[in-house]
């Protein structure tokens, strides 16, 4: 869990750390909207370049962001593959006759086994997965002898499909990078305070932005605590012989219960303690509160806002033309 960078704040000093959270939220929103307005790959690539430049300006290590993208990689790959297979517009670029025979099946099983074994030994699992996928493709296209199991079919890649898949992946990449920059450089408390201030006007229609912000900040604050508690409970039950890796299904069910019950009870205890602590420090819901750090706009925030508005304007102009 610790390797997931999305949603984590890492202390640092850069341009983005000094911006007002409201500015950052608005800017990220505007740039995201602009990204959705873009229509050609060239424009999107420029967008990606802009995102990278923003990372460089903010002195955020690109390596860290890429590492953080790892869990999303699977999602990206799936979108890519589905777009390629399902989109059937435009001219065909690749057209490959595919066969499925007895030998194919045999070779596929062999390839799978080799892949699983190598997976345990080799470090570069992603590269290995690609090699495996390429191997499957080669087997399907060139092993045309042996007893037929299914009718041969043609595998086509269409121009629009390739473009679309590339397009969607780059768009996702930009959006994820932007939101990572936002959460990476903004403390959760600042983020919720910014949200609260931004949603303040909605009070007129009966939306209580302060409670909403409080709920978000408390939930964010308690994610690591709850993880910690869960870990401790797991160790405590493991030392009573609850082995979570082996055993019958019935035993496993009992062991899961032995985790869940203390978890809920500790969560309830924690929430009651927190409520008492807040009350003893005179927290009254709905009262007007003062902050230690008031948010304020500086010239940097104005420049950043103008910059993001410019990007949006540019995107609209491109869209209209």
């Amino acid at each position: 869990m610790k390797s997931i960078i999305i949603g984590q704040y890492i202390p640092g000093k850069g341009l983005f750390y000094r911006l007002d959270p409201r500015t950052k939220i608005i800017a990220v929103l505007l740039i995201m909207i602009s990204v959705f307005l873009l229509e050609t790959i060239e424009q999107l690539l420029i967008g990606l370049a802009t995102a990278i430049v923003l990372l460089l300006i903010g002195k955020i290590s690109i390596l860290k962001v890429i590492k953080g993208l790892k869990p999303i990689m699977i999602l990206l790959i799936f979108t890519f593959i589905f777009q390629i297979i399902l989109n059937r517009e435009g001219e065909t670029i690749v057209s490959q006759q595919m066969y499925f025979t007895g030998y194919t099946l045999l070779l596929l099983i062999l390839a799978f086994i080799v892949w699983r074994i190598l997976n345990k030994l080799v470090k570069y699992r992603f590269t290995l997965f690609f090699l495996f996928a390429a191997g499957v493709f080669l087997i399907l296209s060139y092993v045309d002898f042996g007893p037929k199991i299914a009718e041969p079919f043609t595998f086509n890649i269409y121009r629009a499909g390739l473009e679309m898949s590339f397009f969607v992946v780059v768009r996702l990449l930009i959006i994820i990078t932007l939101s990572t920059v936002l959460t990476l450089t903004t403390k959760p408390t600042d983020l919720t305070q910014g949200l609260e201030k931004l949603m303040h006007p909605m009070k007129k229609i009966g939306f209580d932005s302060e409670s909403f912000a409080l709920i978000i900040s408390i939930s964010l604050r308690y994610i690591p605590t709850i993880f910690d508690e869960a870990n401790k409970i797991m160790l405590a039950q493991a030392s009573r012989g609850a082995d979570f890796s082996e055993g019958k299904l019935k035993d496993k069910l009992r062991q899961v219960i032995s985790l869940l019950v203390p978890m809920f009870i500790i969560a309830f205890m924690r929430s009651e303690e927190l409520a008492n602590a807040m009350e003893s420090r005179n927290f009254v819901p709905g009262e007007k509160r003062t902050r230690i750090n008031e948010l304020y706009f500086s010239h940097r925030d104005i420049i950043a806002t103008i910059f993001s508005f410019l990007i949006l304007a540019l995107a609209i102009v491109l869209k209209v033309m």
Binding site: K232, Q237, S239, R240, A242, I257, S258, L260, P262, I266
Partner: peptide, 23 residues
């Protein structure tokens, strides 16, 4: 462990103590 809350989970004391040996 230091805090008993981390391991008590059954509805009776007897069942809870039995959890260890039964495993």
């Amino acid at each position: 462990f230091q805090f008993p809350e981390y391991q008590l989970f059954e509805e009776t004391v007897e069942k809870d103590i039995m959890f260890g040996p039964m495993n």
